[in-house]
Computed example of a mutant assay.
Amino acid sequence: MIDIPEARFEELVADALDTIPAALAKHMDNVVVLVEDRAVDPNLLGLYQGIPLTERAEYGVGGAMPDRITIFRQPILRSCSSEAEVVEQVRITVVHEVAHHFGIDDDRLAELGWA
């Protein structure tokens, strides 16, 4: 396990978010991204909570509460042995959770190499 200070970890999450193409990022105006130290499930690296964009019209959702993406610091740090690994795992986790916002499920993410 590597230790990276909370502030630095938050920078890594922000950097990963900055890599999302502008054409997609503009559809994330109702998403809050948080960093928490621990998850209830110690193996959970990130969590998307909300209604995916692909389902909003189906439910007639307008003016919905913000979706929430949480990135869990300690589980990511436990799975890595270097800062370079943390950078890559944060990027993968952020992309994975953002993909859920766009309606992409875990099976498809695994096919695409983002599981």
Score class of each variant (00 low, 15 high):
S81C: 10
G103L: 05
L45A: 09
T70R: 09
T19H: 10
H96Q: 10
R8Q: 13
Q49E: 14
A64I: 02
R78M: 14
A110N: 08
R73V: 07
V95R: 13
I20F: 08
L77R: 09
E36T: 08
D105K: 04
R56T: 03
L77N: 10
V95H: 13
T70Q: 05
E10M: 12
T70Y: 04
A23D: 14
N43A: 15
G60N: 04
I20A: 06
L17F: 04
M1E: 14
T93G: 09
V98P: 00
A84F: 07
R108H: 06
E111I: 00
P5I: 02
I20Q: 05
T54H: 00
C80K: 07
D3I: 11
V31S: 06
E6M: 10
H96K: 07
V35Q: 09
A25P: 05
C80W: 06
A99S: 15
V95K: 12
F9W: 08
R8T: 14
E88T: 10
I51Y: 07
R38Q: 12
V33I: 14
P21Y: 12
R108E: 13
A16W: 02
G103C: 06
L12H: 03
I104S: 03
D15A: 15
V13D: 01
S81L: 11
Q89L: 14
A115H: 09
I71H: 02
L109K: 00
V33G: 04
V98F: 11
G63S: 03
R8N: 10
A99H: 03
L12E: 04
I51K: 08
V90E: 05
A7M: 09
D37W: 05
V32N: 13
D15G: 10
E97M: 02
V94C: 08
D29M: 09
V40A: 15
G60C: 02
S82L: 07
G62A: 11
A22D: 15
N30Q: 11
D106R: 10
L34N: 15
F102R: 07
R108Q: 10
R38P: 00
M28R: 08
I2C: 07
R78Q: 15
G103R: 04
E111G: 00
L47I: 00
